[in-house]
Design a protein around this nucleic acid. Structure first.
Lengths: 146, 146
DNA sequence: TTGGAATGGTTGTTTAAACAACCGTATGCA
DNA sequence: TGCATACGGTTGTTTAAACAACCATTCCAA
């Protein structure tokens, strides 16, 4: 029943995800240092919209792995900041499509560059092929459990 | 300046740590299903004490990657549950050493087994050598940033 | 030895997450 | 057609995290 992929003493780091917390905190510090009033959570929503604008809130739930009330409030705050806009869908009146504003587009280049900087620091000394493999493992873990 | 270890479209998963969130939620569900009134955060404190009993609260901060107020309140709650005990240190009167109680010891075997189950599910289909390599990468990331 | 800095821990406050319950719209099946 | 169910989104509540400010003890160096 028990396999030995993990010795017991090593369970913890995998469960708590210290690495990703460290990355998020580091990126948040860069945002603050650059004078950007933007949380990582807000940025993560923008990130998905930059990739594919006009997502529904439900789409954002799936993309960010957060529940519906969390997305409602994140979008509320981003709307107050003038960074996104809710647009009711024509074809399905339950749905809000979320679009980034021009103000948000201006943030894209700067924040993506800070994110890349953070990852370069985080992964310094790690061979690219190891990074790829690690990403594959984490994706598989996510797929196995979701 | 920019390197291409990450294509832009893949930044997100690394920063948000969806995999570890999925693992933690899955384990929490198992705790609930087993009738255990224990959060993952509380369990993570117990986990470190089982490995090395009598840690100071500061030690627990380092081990769990949480700040001091968080540990104070986690220990408060664990004390209320009768699972740990604060014992003032003789050699340094600023320090509380935290010890698990017998009630907590009874939880160890059951919860560690649930944690192993969770990890086995999470890592099913992933070769052990890939898991090892992934752990190394995550540890390196943590060391690079902390 | 003594006064300032560092360390370990606590408390107050703000912010945001999850969960449950709810409303309005859409879908599917009898 | 109509009614039960599912789906997208919002609101209310509780819980816990981070941050700042604080107290007591210890360390260190003038």
């Amino acid at each position: 029943m028990q396999n030995n992929q993990f010795k017991k003493g090593e369970l913890y780091s995998f469960i708590t995800g210290k690495a990703s917390i460290a990355i998020a905190r580091s990126l948040q510090k860069k945002f603050n240092a650059a004078g950007l009033q933007l949380t990582i959570e807000q940025w993560s929503v923008l990130y998905h919209l930059w990739k594919d604008d006009g997502k529904s809130q439900q789409d954002l739930c799936n993309a960010t792995f957060r529940d519906k009330p969390s997305i409602t409030r994140l979008v509320d705050n981003l709307e107050k900041l003038g960074l996104v806009q809710r647009v009711p869908s024509d074809s399905d009146r339950r749905i809000n499509k979320i679009y980034v504003t021009k103000a948000a587009q201006k943030l894209q280049e700067q924040t993506m560059q800070l994110a890349e900087e953070t990852l370069n620091e985080a992964l310094s000394g790690v061979p690219p092929e190891h990074v790829d493999l690690c990403k594959e493992v984490l994706q598989k873990v996510y797929d196995n459990l979701k």
